[in-house]
Design a protein around this nucleic acid. Structure first.
Lengths: 144, 144
DNA sequence: AAAATATCTTGACAAAGTCTAAAATAGGAC
DNA sequence: GTCCTATTTTAGACTTTGTCAAGATATTTT
């Protein structure tokens, strides 16, 4: 399993153990619980929301460990943070470039595939060296 | 003076008094100090940063008053909030649509005029009703 | 000037996040 | 297995951002 495929296949404990080892992270039960939760959700949770969910599996885990583990996963490039919710950083297991849509009624955050939108005119911004960018859209998700 | 011109002309106390009155806000010394600071900065400050600066002019102002006044100005449409900095809401006196560039070295936030960038493909997002959007770019501002 | 409103301040509180010291655990050497 | 060391985890203290309520000040209204 390669890093680029994470986030969809992580339903076996073995996978997360392997993944942690590949990143040079000791696979403790706490870290396994965190990585299995975060790589299997599309919900862009905050650290405290992750804590709440991870405790269902691993009731004794401390807040500091969840924060430490999530930050470690960010440092290793397995997840990334997004600044799109008021008051808290959210964690995003989709490490490929993509955009975001935020439902202002529910607070839900949806990924928009990179190739669905095109941003034109960036080369005109002569004063800025762009390292990354994304479009952030807000509104309502339509009911089916 | 109309609301659409605010943010550039606000160097006379009279202007801010007029503006507050136009919005049905009683122009107290505290509120004048807050509005004069916030409408004359391009720096996208947090509420606590605003407090710090406003206290230079009005040393006795309380934190609650700065928060209340800023939120009041948001409600009246004179400034708006942006979620682009980690850990805190920032206030933006540019109420016209625009994009943002964030210098990752300094944390400085720069406005990018609306017409400099074009986002194509929004109509393909059938599941979403878009109320607003912006492009957020990160990188380094080039030295002159 | 007294009463009624509106505003401001202080301090308490909650949530998000970091840090530290001590306890628990794991891994390696023997 | 036992001992030793390095790594992890935990609990709690602390900071920052933000809100709220109660009392103190100001401002209007009459």
């Amino acid at each position: 399993m390669t890093k680029s495929k994470i986030g969809l296949y992580l339903n076996k404990v073995n996978d997360s153990v392997t993944l942690l080892r590949e990143c040079g992270i000791q696979p403790t039960p706490q870290r396994i619980a965190v990585i299995e939760f975060i790589l299997n959700t599309r919900s862009h949770p905050s650290a405290d929301q992750a804590l709440e969910q991870v405790r269902l599996q691993c009731p004794t885990i401390s807040r500091a460990t969840v924060y430490n583990t999530l930050n470690l996963l960010v440092k290793k490039g397995l997840v990334r943070t997004q600044i799109i919710r008021e008051g808290t950083v959210v964690f995003d297991c989709n490490i490929n470039q993509h955009h975001h849509f935020i439902d202002e009624e529910t607070g839900n955050i949806y990924d928009i595939p990179w190739d669905q939108l095109e941003v034109k005119g960036k080369d005109r911004l002569k004063d800025f060296e762009i390292v990354e960018f994304q479009v952030i859209l807000r509104g309502r998700r339509k009911k089916k």
